Computed example of a mutant assay.
Amino acid sequence: MFARQIAIALSLMLAGTSIAAAQAPNRIQQFKAWGAYSYKQGNGTVCYVLSVPTTKEPASVDHGDIFFIVSQRPGQNISYEPQAMMGYTLQANSKVTVTIDGKNFVMFTKDKAAWVENAAEEPALVAAMKTGTNMSVSAVSGRGTKTSYAYSLAGISAALKQVESCK
């Protein structure tokens, strides 16, 4: 089941790139709730850590496959880019809120994904993930359903350390 979710996450990440230029992900190692992965894209390597929510609310709706990813793309000068990936289209012009230990980070949305609205806050979000215990993500679906997800942050520091030297 988890391998299927990883394959779906990778396909969503690659949506804007040439599939022929990318290869299947290589699972580097699992660190508690977070896995470290890499794949070749063109002449470079993309590395990322990924986790799935421990709970999904409301429980009565089909959320599809949900992920939180932090990726590294050295060839594109992208370092530790957090991204929320949903199994449904998000409400147009809505925001996703990531909360760690009472601190909120706002993400902008496009289709089924969300990224940190102010890129300068990406390092602070990643730092909060490393020192936090739990993380929640709140969103609104295209149908107007308010959703929330809880994530364990156990293993995030070790997983990020594993992809630190991505080349």
Rank of each mutant, 00 (worst) to 15 (best):
N134C: 01
C47S: 14
S71R: 05
R143V: 08
I156R: 02
T17L: 13
T45K: 09
W34E: 05
K161R: 07
T133G: 01
N104Q: 12
N26L: 04
A9I: 07
Q162M: 05
V61M: 10
W115G: 06
T147C: 07
K110S: 11
A3D: 13
S51W: 10
P74H: 02
V163D: 15
E164F: 00
S60A: 15
Y39N: 09
N118M: 11
S38G: 09
G75N: 14
S38D: 14
S94P: 14
N118P: 00
Q162F: 09
I28G: 13
A158Y: 05
T45W: 01
S141Q: 08
G42F: 14
A127V: 05
V49R: 15
V163F: 13
A7G: 10
T45Q: 10
G132Q: 08
K40M: 09
V106W: 07
E122S: 11
A128E: 12
N134D: 05
W115D: 07
L50I: 12
A158C: 04
E57I: 09
S148K: 03
I156G: 00
I6L: 14
T133W: 00
Y39D: 14
G132W: 05
S136V: 03
E122G: 12
T55K: 13
A24R: 13
I6G: 10
T131M: 03
E81C: 06
Y80Q: 14
Q29V: 00
C166H: 07
Q41G: 13
M86G: 02
V106P: 00
F67Q: 06
E164V: 11
R27K: 07
E81Q: 08
L90Y: 06
G132R: 08
V98H: 02
M135V: 04
A15V: 04
T54W: 10
V126R: 10
K161Q: 13
A158G: 04
V96K: 13
V126W: 14
F105K: 09
E117P: 13
S138Y: 05
C47I: 01
K40V: 13
V163C: 15
V98A: 03
I28D: 11
N43A: 12
A113Y: 08
V140E: 09
A119Q: 00
